[in-house]
Amino acid sequence: MEIRPNCENCNKPLPYDSEEAMICTFDCTFCADCVTGILEDVCPNCGGNFERRPIRPKSLLKKYPISKKAVLNPIKKATFEEKKRQLKPIAPADR
């Protein structure tokens, strides 16, 4: 797991111990506010759902450092609204 340092949509910092970090199955990383308010639990990249990102223990950060590469790909609202409308009614495992 990469442990990306920011929300891909709003660029909010999400340090390794953030309880606000949410990820999809491909490690796409968003803050809880974006996941619940804008994305409504639909990943704009893969269409999957989100889970809270685990916190990497501080004692393992040296051996397994977090990613320093920030990913910023703000949601294109018009395009995403259509994708969300199609996918949201479908259970994540069936998308």
Rank of each mutant, 00 (worst) to 15 (best):
I90M: 07
A78W: 00
A78I: 03
E81N: 15
K12Q: 12
I66T: 14
T25V: 10
P65W: 09
K68P: 00
K62N: 06
P15M: 00
K12W: 04
R95A: 11
C46V: 01
E82H: 10
L39S: 01
K83T: 14
E82K: 13
E19T: 12
C10M: 00
P92G: 03
N49C: 11
K58L: 15
I3N: 08
I75D: 02
K76G: 07
K58A: 15
C46G: 05
C24Q: 04
C28W: 11
C28S: 11
C28T: 08
P54N: 07
R4W: 03
S59L: 12
T36S: 15
I55K: 03
K76H: 07
C28R: 11
A78R: 09
I90D: 04
I23W: 10
K68Q: 04
L14H: 11
L87C: 02
G47H: 00
N9T: 02
R53Q: 12
A32G: 05
C46A: 04
K77M: 09
L61Q: 09
F30D: 03
P13H: 06
Y16G: 05
A21V: 01
M1V: 15
I38K: 15
F30T: 11
E20Q: 14
P65T: 13
K69Y: 02
P13T: 05
G48H: 06
C10G: 00
R95W: 01
D94M: 09
M1I: 07
G48W: 06
T36P: 01
N11L: 08
L72T: 05
A21C: 05
G48K: 00
N45C: 10
T25G: 13
A91E: 15
D94H: 13
K62I: 02
C24A: 05
N73A: 11
